[in-house]
């Protein structure tokens, strides 16, 4: 499935919830299913530092696709990364680099996050795209 279709799917899923407690419950469940980064890969350079919670992201190429793993000490943050990874993982670096992320606005996620978490979300997306651009450069 391509990045666009996955985003549609997520928007569909979130439209089924009545309130933000249900959406949080769903994010928490997603957080528990996040493909975890290996402990030894939780290095300083893979850390996206935030004021409130920490996030580690790792990327590796499998054939022509990028595979992401990640972790965070906060579970809701993990749920949000799980959504991003679902969109970005198993896609080509080109597709990731060129993609535009719209599902976050469409499900109203950003406005329901605290400002620190919303900033963290922006830097996470940037970081994932950075990986894609770096791998793209390597391949060329």
């Amino acid at each position: 499935m391509g990045i666009e279709e996955i985003q549609d799917e997520i928007v569909d899923e979130f439209s089924m919830f009545d309130d933000w407690m249900q959406r949080y419950e769903y994010l928490i469940d997603l957080g528990k299913s996040l493909p975890l980064i290996k402990e030894e890969d939780k290095t300083e350079e893979r850390l996206i530092k935030g004021c409130q919670s920490q996030v580690w992201v790792h990327a590796e190429m499998k054939e022509d696709k990028l595979i992401f793993t990640a972790d965070s000490d906060a579970i809701i943050t993990k749920g949000i990364i799980a959504l991003l990874i679902r969109v970005f993982s198993n896609q080509t670096p080109q597709d990731i680099a060129q993609s535009s992320i719209r599902f976050i606005d469409e499900i109203g996620l950003k406005e329901h996050l605290s400002p620190t978490r919303a900033n963290g979300l922006v830097s996470m997306i940037k970081q994932l795209k950075h990986y894609a651009i770096a791998f793209q450069a390597k391949m060329n």
Partner: peptide
């Protein structure tokens, strides 16, 4: 082992303002 930020985020949705961090 729950992260304070997670607890704060959920109770915020229930109208409760606390500080976390």
């Amino acid at each position: 082992s729950l992260h304070p930020y997670d607890i704060g985020s959920i109770i915020d949705k229930l109208g409760i303002a606390v500080r976390t961090g």
